[in-house]
């Protein structure tokens, strides 16, 4: 068990215990999921869609990120993406975009942690 990694994830708002439960204690699978998260491009695509005013694409990307962070029990991020998804579903692009100031630093932080795997 990689305690240092888990500790950093916890500090970045991840419920590691819940995440491990979701994979039924299969740590290898958990690490594979984290690697998938780290290689995922949805976040860059979300930023692009928001800047180009593509509300529908932004919604799809945000929705995917919500699902992914939910599965990994990245609770803080998950809640932010959930709020963003609802704004975008309702067509409110600017509120969705303004959430990025909270989302981006947290997302980058977690991505940095995970990139060490």
């Amino acid at each position: 068990m990689d305690t240092a990694l888990y500790e950093s994830l916890k500090n970045a708002g991840t419920d590691v215990g819940a995440a491990l439960e979701r994979v039924m204690g299969n740590e290898t699978l958990f690490l594979r999921l984290l690697k998938k998260f780290s290689a995922d491009t949805n976040f860059e695509e979300l930023k692009k869609a928001l800047s180009e005013g593509e509300t529908e694409t932004a919604f799809a990307k945000s929705h995917s990120l919500k699902g992914m962070t939910g599965n990994l029990s990245m609770t803080a991020l998950y809640e932010l993406f959930s709020r963003q998804t609802e704004f975008l579903r309702g067509g409110d692009l600017s509120s969705g975009a303004s959430l990025m100031s909270e989302i981006e630093p947290l997302y980058e932080k977690i991505r940095d942690i995970v990139s060490t795997i």
């Binding site: 979701r22 994979v23 039924m24 299969n26 699978l29 594979r32 999921l33 998938k36 998260f37 995917s64 699902g67 992914m68 599965n71 990994l72």
Partner: peptide, 13 residues
């Protein structure tokens, strides 16, 4: 499911 993580988690179950 289009989400690969979801498929991996469900498959594992």
């Amino acid at each position: 499911d289009d989400d690969e993580l979801n498929r991996m988690i469900l498959s594992n179950i």
